[in-house]
Design a protein around this nucleic acid. Structure first.
Length: 1177
RNA sequence: GGGCUUGUAGCUCAGGUGGUUAGAGCGCUACACUGAUAAUGUAGAGGUCCCUGGUUCGAGUCCAGGCAGGCCCA
């Protein structure tokens, strides 16, 4: 059996497609699930993508994160079913269809039937499914594509209906209103999309009013009045608020301030009534509110008045009198709770309303600014979305009035005029929606009439015309009204506390998204607005009688059919469209044509809304199984999820709807662990967009670099929750540094394993305890790595896992273990030591394959397969072409029979993804060994540095290095790795210098951390004293463990653990230091060393010659050198001939008078003609 | 405007609970090493740790305020 050898460079993309073909042919994904039958389940929910657009590179990132943890949990032995799914409803699809058909929402039902329209949506939404599926497979995202849930299918919708009914039965579903853009002239609500049409925002000149809201004196406002009394001022106090829509003032029920905004209480005068008053307004805006006359202009005016003696003085006096006098300052939060009098009260003929007693208070509002106005915002909950929201949060009622039928509504009717109860203004148009004549001289708009009334009764502080932009209906060109429109809600606020409580049990990555973004959102939760006025989506299954007294919520298709039968019996419907086994389509328009009959015999009509698409996706845990109609046990087993992952933009989307529905329906979390990943930006940090042309094509990227390096880069570069600046240079780096190194390490293994006919057995044949220091070290490191990586994966941190694996492979395995082990592999027969080396390296590589498998699934499986399933020997194992050449062969490994499991790490070699990841074997972890190997690495590094300084090539052997040691344990540690150091840096001995040598020069450094705790403020003086300790003092401190010193006239006792003593110098030697380590290099060259150095030079030249001549590693040669070579070379060959012959696999090495047709070996000081011939056996 | 988040070398990123000389990789320069290695080693250049203030004997790290970028929401 031979291990497959590959030509390089490796084609990573080809490798992946080959592995993919192998997976598909052998059903590896299916086996990765089925082989865990009966094991505990790791539950994962796939957040459904929408297939109406092409996938982008960020999808590779998001799905890599999902894939990693599913694969990892499979390796832990869990069963991880992964049902795919598609999100198919929603506005983006409708817009796309409208764009393609060149129609608008208005045309639906006219130019195109709802039926046709929805049919188009259905076709459009899956348009790019094939591309998505292809990407899924190319990137190696394992998810069940064959049996996905699709949100438009009747079963899925039926499940949603069942959930809605459950909510309905619990009383969580109610009809209320939200404030939406509304066009009275068109009689219709406008979507934000419609509002974003060009030209909708126009400059208009409106009458604006700064209104005075008279403060009621009570406990909350007492501080204002006390401040006034302190100044001996006795005037009424008003809060000022500015509005550009005076017609909303009669609907005012609250005033909002910014908690941290500075406000002042100032005394001034009402410019219309000339009454002296105190007002509250933002400090920053006070000057803009009160018109103070201009001094210069006044002075000039008075100059021409003979009655004025001192024009300037008079002017100044007037200005001073006009300037408001600031009495006190307050923060917004100090004003919260103050009550004020209703502006348009019942005494003036305006009606009472429900909840009135809770109205007319100052409340905090997070949207309040000091950009313009007064810094205090007038709140009319029926005419502003913000207003509505803060009113709800602060339990402020909306001003609603009953109509003839007793139904409550706002003070403006749907046509845009005041309702009749509005006293003197009853029936007036809010804006000119009917196109009435405005040309009369006495004509006043409603805003103007209101302003005039307020001026006369002293409630207007200021009125003026003001130009600003305002949205207009794109169809009628009339101003848009923000208006309460009917809407169905889910009463999420009813379970707010529970939502918050359960959220605390979820493991969020990063944590801040859970506590901050999500947690704060829950704290400020409002009810979930479920209604959408659209066509393509899940219909709201509620039917109502016209008088709204009776209604029914349908929870299943069966229930609907039964209700239809009743309706047919009552002759409300002529026939049951779903009666005779026809395919049930629950979409519009079909459901709209269904009328039901109420218990009292009245017809019931469906509420025309669709539900929010986020309900669809929040229903995934239930509806993906068509629960509760089917799969009860499956649902129970797969709820809640152990893990989900999506973009952070889903926080208020999918993450919320999953959580909200789970809490309301099951009183449970929907997921236990969640990764909210960041954005994928371009390499400059800009958002990718097709428009800017900086979007990265995932297919191109995968084709160019392969999926493994792409995934590795994305995961290793930065944590998933940080934004990723995508730069393909990073993929190249991952490829070179990690995959390249790993591939080379494998190639090294395969090359020599095949030469030695090494075969990894079922169990290692050499007990670990009997292996060399180096073997035990790398195995210790490997087990440490295993523990570390498992820890990172367990805590959902794939980045740290990837980095740990990468460092192990590059720094420890390749650059230390293999580097120092090479000679063991080259030499001689297959000894026990060699066997141990192969087994060690095999163990390392196969474990690395397992650890990296979740992140780089193709490469890992390729590597694992190569290690576990060597090929049968082929006639020409090293020959050109197949099967060693990845490039040219169709080298999908031929796998006839899977190898048996190997030990704990096994699990079937058919694929690394079917294996079980072992627990780290802590008995193999030897921290002391790891420490001394680090010492060896650092000493080697210092020695290299010294060689560099002395210009002595590594090839030149040197006698010794000197290592000062201050304690016995360091000496013991280093001596155990002495051989390795010597081999690595090419010296003969390591000599230790201990304290008794008397040549060490020590330095002492304060241990600030310890000293700081003891001496605090005196640390500086103590530290300075320590640095001036004499050698005698130092040795006393060392011997006795403490030393009395005088610092600033005080005697202190220093302890040994308060300083760090290290050797610094060896007089007369060139030294290098690294923290506590010091190394000196003996650079004395003897003749023998020189000769050996030259022998090594010769070996190097001959090896290069072999290589250049295209010889194979195992070829034996004969070497002829020109006899004309200098005497030193002759001497070197004479002394080290055996060594040279062995190194270069030479059977003969001799000097000849003439070298014909050979090469010339270049040395530093001379050159020698030489010839190398292959000796055939 | 609000919530959250980020700011460390030219680039990408590390830097438990504060400790005096702030690190790695890439890139750049020079030299070396190599019969696995497009790998690697050594050395060099490259930093107002975003700014300001505070706490402290001591701040990249803690606190406050700002600035700049990002996401979500208004």
């Amino acid at each position: 059996m031979t291990y497959t050898e590959y030509k390089q460079p490796l084609d990573y993309a080809k490798l992946a497609t080959d592995v993919r073909a192998y997976w598909e042919a052998n059903g590896i994904f299916e086996k990765s699930v089925s082989s865990r039958d009966g094991q505990p389940t790791f539950v994962f929910y796939e957040g459904p993508p929408s297939a109406n657009g092409q996938p982008g590179i960020h999808h590779v990132m998001a799905r890599a994160v999902k894939d990693i943890f599913c694969r990892y949990q499979t390796q832990l032995g869990k069963q991880v079913p992964r049902k795919g799914g598609w999100d198919t409803h929603g506005l983006p699809i409708e817009l796309q269809v409208e764009k393609e058909l060149g129609i608008t929402k208005e045309d639906i039902g006219h130019k195109i039937s709802v039926e046709e329209y929805n049919q188009r949506c259905r076709e459009t939404v899956m348009r790019f499914k094939a591309q998505w599926d292809e990407l899924t497979q190319q990137m190696g995202y394992w998810v069940d594509l064959d049996d996905p849930y699709i949100t438009f299918e009747p079963e899925y919708i039926e499940s949603c209906w069942a959930l809605l009914k459950k909510l309905y039965d619990k009383g969580f579903l109610y009809k209320g209103y939200t404030i939406q853009p509304y066009s009275p002239a068109a009689g219709t609500g406008l979507s934000s999309h419609e509002l974003n049409q060009p030209g909708t925002y126009k400059d208009v000149k409106d009458t604006t009013v700064v209104a005075q809201f008279k403060v009621v004196r009570d406990a909350a406002s007492e501080k204002l009045f006390e401040a006034l009394e302190a100044e001996k001022v006795d005037v009424p106090v008003s809060v000022l608020a500015w509005t550009t829509t005076p017609w909303t003032l009669p609907a005012n029920t609250a005033l909002a301030v910014g908690n941290n905004i500075d406000y002042v209480l100032a005394v001034t005068e009402n410019q219309y009534t000339h009454e002296k008053i105190a007002v509250v307004a933002a400090k920053k805006l006070l000057d803009k509110l009160v018109a103070v006359p201009n001094v210069t202009a006044l002075t000039k005016q008075f100059s021409s008045d003979p009655l004025v003696i001192d024009p300037l003085k008079t002017a100044l006096a007037i200005v001073e009198a006009a300037r408001p006098k600031i009495i006190a300052e307050f923060k917004g939060k100090d004003l919260v709770g103050i009550h004020y009098e209703r502006l348009f009260g019942t005494e003036a003929g305006f009606p009472h309303f429900e909840g009135e007693e809770n109205a007319f208070r100052v409340i905090p509002g997070d949207f309040v600014t000091t950009e313009d106005g007064t810094g205090i915002v007038h709140i009319s909950p029926t005419f502003g979305a913000d207003d509505f929201r803060v009113a709800q949060l602060n339990n402020i009622p909306a001003l609603m009035l009953p109509d003839k039928e007793g139904t409550l509504g706002p003070i403006v009717d749907r046509t845009g005029r005041y309702v009749a109860q509005m006293g003197e203004f009853g029936g007036r148009w809010v804006k000119n929606y009917d196109g009435h004549d405005q040309s009369g001289a006495d004509y006043k708009t409603l805003d103007e009439s209101i302003a005039i009334r307020m001026r006369t009764n002293g409630t207007a502080f200021k009125t003026e015309k003001y130009e600003h932009t305002y949205p207009h209906c794109w169809r009628t060109d009339k101003p848009v009204l923000y208006y309460p429109l009917d809407s169905w809600f889910i009463k999420t606020t009813a379970v707010k506390d529970r939502l918050i409580e359960l959220n605390k049990t979820i493991n969020w990555k990063p944590e801040s998204t859970g506590t901050g973004r999500f947690g704060n959102w829950l704290e400020n939760l409002v009810d979930w607005n479920l209604s959408r006025s659209r066509y393509w989506g899940t219909p709201l299954p509620i039917w109502r009688t016209q008088d709204r007294t009776e209604e029914i919520c349908i929870g299943s298709i069966a229930e609907l059919k039964a209700e239809i039968d009743k309706a047919v019996a009552a002759e409300v419907m002529t026939h049951n469209p779903y009666a005779n086994g026809e395919k049930v389509d629950l979409h519009r328009p079909y459901v709209d044509d269904i009328f039901l009959v109420s218990p009292s015999g009245q017809p019931m009509y469906r509420e025309p809304d669709l539900i929010d698409v986020w309900f669809d996706s929040g229903a995934v845990p239930y509806a993906q199984w068509h629960y509760p109609f089917e799969n009860q046990e499956k649902f129970a087993k797969n709820f809640p999820a152990d893990f989900i992952a999506e973009g952070v933009d889903q926080t208020r989307g999918w993450f919320f709807t999953l959580h909200a529905l789970a809490v309301m329906l099951e009183d449970s979390v929907a997921f236990k662990n969640v990764i909210a990943n960041g954005l994928v930006l371009d390499k400059e940090g800009n958002k990718m967009s097709k428009r800017l042309g900086n979007a990265v094509d995932p297919f191109e990227t995968i084709a160019k670099y392969g999926p493994d390096a792409t995934r590795w880069y994305m995961i290793a570069n930065s944590s998933p929750w940080d934004n990723l600046k995508f730069d393909s240079a990073g993929i190249v780096e991952a490829q070179r540094k990690f995959f390249g190194t790993l591939f080379n390490t494998y190639s090294f293994f395969a090359l020599y394993a095949n030469l030695d006919r090494f075969q990894m057995g079922e169990k290692p044949s050499v007990p670990v305890a009997e292996r060399t220091e180096l073997d035990r070290w790398i195995l210790s490191k490997l087990q440490s790595l295993l523990a570390e990586v498992r820890g990172h994966f367990d805590s959902y941190d794939p980045t740290k896992a990837a980095r740990a694996i990468q460092d192990f492979v590059a720094d420890q395995l390749s650059n230390w273990y293999v580097r120092l082990s090479r000679r063991r592999f080259w030499k001689g027969e297959l000894t026990t030591d060699k066997q141990a080396a192969y087994e060690t390296l095999h163990e390392c590589l196969s474990t690395v394959a397992q650890l990296m498998a979740p992140i780089a699934p193709f490469f890992a499986d390729w590597l694992y397969g190569n290690l576990m399933q060597p090929h049968p020997p082929t006639p020409s194992p090293m020959g050109e072409g197949e099967p060693n050449d990845f490039e040219t062969s169709d080298n999908v490994r031929s796998i006839s029979a899977p190898l048996p499991r190997r030990g704990g790490a096994g699990g079937g070699a058919e694929s690394v993804h079917l294996t079980y990841l072992a627990e780290a074997d802590t008995t193999l972890i030897d921290k002391a060994l790891e420490e001394r190997m680090e010492l060896a690495q650092r000493i080697s590094s210092l020695t290299h540095s010294l060689r560099k300084k002395s210009v002595l090539k590594v090839r030149q052997p040197l006698q010794r290095i000197l290592v000062p040691v201050l304690n016995g344990s360091t000496k013991e540690q280093v001596s155990k790795v002495e051989d390795l150091i010597c081999a690595e840096v090419n010296v003969k001995h390591v000599e230790f210098l201990d304290d008794t040598s008397g040549v060490l020069v020590k330095s002492v450094k304060p241990n600030f951390k310890r000293l700081g705790q003891v001496y605090g403020p005196r640390l500086k003086a103590v530290g300075a004293r320590i640095q001036t300790l004499s050698p005698d003092e130092l040795s006393q401190l060392e011997k006795q463990g403490e030393l009395a010193v005088e610092v600033e006239g005080e005697t202190l006792t220093l302890h040994l653990d308060e300083v760090e003593i290290r050797t610094q110098d060896l007089p007369g030697w060139l030294v290098a230091t690294d923290g506590p380590l010091t190394v000196a290099l003996d650079v004395t060259l003897t003749d023998e060393l020189r000769q050996e150095g030259l022998a090594r030079e010769l070996v190097n030249r001959l090896q290069n010659l072999r290589k250049d001549s295209g010889l194979e590693v195992q070829d034996r040669i004969s070497v002829a050198l020109a006899a004309s070579a200098p005497a030193e070379l002759h001497a070197a060959v004479a002394s080290f001939g055996n060594y040279i012959r062995e190194e270069v696999q030479a059977l003969r090495l001799e000097f000849v008078p003439e070298v014909a047709g050979g090469a010339v070996l270049e040395f530093d000081d001379f050159s020698v003609p030489a010839k190398v011939d292959v000796v055939t056996a």
